[in-house]
Design a protein around this nucleic acid. Structure first.
Lengths: 251, 251
DNA sequence: AAGTGGTCTAGACCACTAA
DNA sequence: TAGTGGTCTAGACCACTTA
């Protein structure tokens, strides 16, 4: 059992005033306080920190508020919580962060650049091995293949290959995709699908290389996503970004 | 304003029983229920859903419980909430998912493979442009450069380049890194640093290509991380994974 | 059996913002 | 100004796990 011994018994009021510039809520202030004590070494990795009840008394707030703060820290992988045992500072450097994948238009406009979308190619054809696997389709199934291209300020930003399974969703008039990206059409028709993401490094080849205006063989960042509805795969999309592109995320 | 009209006024009790197999909490049941109604098209993208108060009455629970459920949905980007306005089903397909970056040992052992770590190279030298920029160091500063290599079942899994800034942290005896990866040493000495991640596609060159047993020019997935302590960059690490490697995350 | 976190409640007040 | 979500409380009970 760990005994907390504060030099000065900091009350919540004092702390709230201290953090007034940042306008922190009570639970945010508690989260910050706990984080600071972990960073300072007061609570080293692997060590038990005080119970919710103890912290609530110390901070002068309700246990539910402490719970909220510690729950947020646990979901970030900073601490680990177990009933009856208590709360431990995580001993590994494992971290969880949130990756946000916005709509292409938003992504480009957030950079302050001009967005342009173009349909490159559209056809009904049999699936490649990857597409068949992702869509759980048969080799003789006719699938819709849509290739698109996104420009930012007139230069190639991303190219995309989308496979759609007609057995899983009623396909629109292909002309529709001349104006609207398949992903946006999908999200309008299948709100909140289940999506499985996958990020990998690939090399630009053929149409993809031409579309991105890159020499064949150039490394590109690939983001794959399979949208499913009721466990039935509906679409299999691959987006390719030129090598300058970075997925960035801070804590 | 939207009027909810249930065919059968489902009470929380009934719903809890319905979901008993899944052992859902009240807030999880509410989250599932709201998600189901969005998926079913009852609440299309862009539409306002009932207020917390209305849902609380309908579900027969406290408003705080509804709040918990809706907060979780909002943090996933499924719904958007604004005071005075209400809660809307997100109209874009923007999604947020959690990326978990475990410790290399855990990552490899989670695959059921044998973990092996090796120090490839270690020296004090002046920083490259990238390192200087990341560590906010001067060109004449001597930095510690550590190159390492991770094997899974004896085959190359990842190679890593870590720059450490002696001005920001007291460096250990270099021999220490023969046994312990720099990242793990760091996390033991700087618990819960601020980390900035960046993911990109690069190509294997020189020592990196040899280390991964790949031809020079092969696309590799690069994960960069800059650890900072009190806004002072301490380390700049780049991990390179062969092209088969995928970062996968489901919803 | 006992201790810890997880959830839930009923009510209150606050913060933000459209009207 | 009024309506909505955001937070907080004091207390209760439950779920899980170690002893």
């Amino acid at each position: 059992m760990l005994t907390v011994n504060h030099g000065s018994s900091t009350s919540l009021r004092a702390e709230a005033l201290e953090n007034s510039a940042k306008r922190l809520n009570t639970w945010q202030a508690i989260r910050a306080d706990v984080l600071a004590r972990i960073r300072s070494g007061e609570w080293p990795p692997g060590e038990l920190i005080p119970t919710e009840q103890e912290l609530a008394v110390e901070m002068g707030c309700a246990r539910a508020t402490v719970n909220r703060a510690l729950r947020e820290l646990a979901s970030s992988g900073i601490i680990e919580r177990r009933r009856k045992v208590g709360t431990r500072v995580a001993s590994t450097s494992s971290r969880r962060t949130t990756l946000s994948l916005p709509v292409m238009r938003d992504e480009i406009e957030a950079l302050g650049q001009r967005y342009h979308y173009a349909l490159t190619e559209i056809e009904m054809r049999r699936g490649t091995a990857g597409a068949l696997n992702a869509l759980q389709a048969d080799p003789e199934d006719e699938l819709m293949l849509v290739k698109t291209r996104y420009l930012a300020d007139g230069t190639a930003y991303c190219c995309e290959t989308v496979w759609l399974n007609p057995k899983a969703i009623a396909l629109p008039d292909p002309k529709l995709f001349e104006a609207e990206p398949p992903q946006e059409w999908l999200s309008r028709h299948l709100p909140v699908q289940q999506t499985r993401f996958s990020i990998l490094a690939d090399e630009a080849t053929g149409a993809c290389a031409r579309s991105l205006e890159l020499p064949s063989g150039t490394p590109v960042l690939a983001i794959e996503r399979v949208n499913s509805l009721d466990a039935v795969p509906v679409s299999y999309a691959r987006q390719f970004y030129p090598p300058q592109h970075r997925l960035i995320f801070d804590d």
